[in-house]
Nucleic acid binder design. Structure first.
Length: 463
RNA sequence: GUCCCUAUCGUCUAGAGGCCUAGGACAAUACCCUUUCACGGUAUGAACCGGGGUUCGAAUCCCCGUGGGGACGCCA
């Protein structure tokens, strides 16, 4: 049997971190087993679905590199098929028309809630042998309900949570088609999973409660029931549930915040799944290792600190040209002119081991593109009269250096230190402030070398 | 209210009855490296939710609590 998995978001917003992880696991499972990964857009909620959201989801997946093999399929384009199946079910008696109005349903619900009962449809229009149905009211368009079994249990072996069993008594006859004839979510999913030959449904555990209904419909249809794997949710950094109002952001926000997609992927893979003590691994490795057995059944809290660490690891290992392009893009976005004659890749090489995001890298590279002035506070603290005098001496010595390489530059600094009878930091720190606008930097002789003679002397002149 | 899921360091987790004196990673702390800040290195502290069983033996299996989450729509 060839594995077929799917990611089925409803296009009502961006691709957030939870959705991304669901997509990642579905994708990885298909890849692991040489199967097919399908993208399906569940857009039957016409009021909330937008083409912009579809695009946002696809953009997010592209950024992460989660390519689908089939689709995107749109549920709105499969209406005829759903209606066909509904007709068939009506004919074979596994579904029936229900003329109960919304108002009546609301009243029923209110009544049940008042009695502290589980709100459910009471089956008044459910055809039963020897039962007399109410007379059809005039002017009411009926909905179609699924005739759910009333006895026995629905059970499945959930691939992450183990065996789950629910009594059919807990389930009511849910609506599969609205009064206007359009099919509902739980029904479309079933038909789609069936038609698309989905073998493994990997989705969020907010769908656990839908699963028994879906299995019952699948059975009524004579379809094969797929394997289910319900992923627990991801909580925010503060342990609170992620929601549109609280903490949920688009995966593209991570791009904007300076994260490398492979770091986000590695982090997500490790959130709720593990392979022994492995923390840092490539997607190739992940795909080889990935299995459903090692997914955690409980909710996981997002931890930005660890993501930052992973990001730093990936930045260290990343190609300089790529990092330079990313840093330039970010600086250009801030309106910084990056068309310097200086080789920015050398500056990137100096900083890539020290930063934990591409934005930090961009900030670090900034003074190599254009002059960045220190704040008055920093100047006042470090550019004292004594410091200025030392820098003047240093400028002279640097002007005289024959070959502009770090060892020679280091020698010039040391001579200055000796000439003024001070310690190294007394020269090195003001020098950093004068050249980069900040008191910290990598090894100062390296910085001097990369910055080049002209820029160095010019900026020393300006002190 | 009813049903379903869930519970190991602050966080992510390893753990499939003896390998556990509970391991790793992030974070924290200390020290080392260093012209600064980082990076890096070394070390330290830090957990099996509670109570009952089962068993020669339980973090691991069962039950009951408790905490957390989800579902109960003509939303998806």
């Amino acid at each position: 049997m060839t594995v077929r998995t799917r990611f089925a978001p409803s296009p009502t917003g961006f691709l957030h971190i939870g959705g991304a992880r669901t997509a990642l696991f579905s994708w990885a499972y298909a890849r692991r087993h040489g199967g097919t990964f399908i993208l399906r857009i569940e857009d039957t909620d016409v009021a909330r679905s937008t083409p912009e959201a579809v695009q946002a989801i696809i953009d997010g997946m592209n950024w992460l590199g989660l390519a689908h093999d089939e689709g995107p399929f749109y549920q709105m384009q499969r209406m005829d098929r759903y209606k066909e199946v509904i007709q068939q079910m009506l004919k074979d008696g596994s579904a029936y028309y229900c003329y109960t109005s919304k108002e009546e349903l609301d009243a029923l619900r209110a009544e049940q809630e008042a009695k502290k009962e589980k709100p459910r449809y009471d089956g008044r229009w459910r055809p039963e042998a020897g039962k007399t149905l109410p007379s059809v009211p005039a002017g009411v368009e009926p909905v179609v309900r699924f005739k759910n079994p009333t006895t026995g249990v629905v059970a499945w072996e959930d691939q992450v949570k183990g065996r789950i069993e629910i009594a059919n008594e807990e389930l009511d006859d849910f609506i599969i088609a609205r009064a206007d004839g359009t099919p509902t979510y739980n029904f479309c999913v079933v038909v789609d999973d069936w038609d698309m030959g989905i073998t493994h449904v990997i989705r969020g555990d907010d769908h656990v409660n839908n699963t028994p209904r879906q299995i019952n419909v699948l059975s009524a249809l004579g379809a094969t029931v797929p394997q289910y794997a319900h992923l627990s949710m991801i909580l925010g950094d503060d342990g609170q549930k992620l929601s549109k109002r609280h903490g949920a952001v688009s995966v593209m926000q991570y791009d904007e915040d300076g994260y490398l997609p492979e770091a986000v992927l590695n982090y997500l893979a490790r959130l709720g799944w593990s392979h022994g003590d492995e923390e840092l691994f490539s997607m190739e490795q992940f795909v080889q290792w990935f299995d459903l057995d090692h997914i955690t059944a409980s909710a996981a809290q997002f931890n930005t600190e660890k993501l930052n660490w992973l990001n730093a690891q990936y930045i260290k290992a990343a190609d300089n040209a790529r990092l330079t392009a990313e840093a330039k893009k970010r600086l250009a976005g801030q309106g910084v002119d990056t068309s310097t004659a200086l080789d920015l890749e050398r500056a990137v090489a100096l900083y890539k081991e020290r930063v934990s995001s591409l934005n930090e890298l961009a900030d670090a590279i900034h003074p190599f593109c254009v002059t960045v002035h220190a704040s008055e506070e920093v100047r006042a603290q470090h550019l004292t009269e004594a410091a200025k005098a030392a820098l003047a001496t240093l400028a002279e010595k640097l002007a005289a250096v024959s070959e502009w390489v770090a060892p020679n530059l280091s020698a010039a600094i040391k001579e200055t230190v000796a000439a003024h009878g001070v310690k190294m930091p007394a020269v090195a720190i003001p020098l950093r402030v004068a050249l980069l606008g900040q008191p910290q930097s990598p090894s100062i002789d390296q910085v001097l070398e990369v910055l080049g003679r002209e820029r160095v002397l010019e900026r020393l002149q300006a002190v």
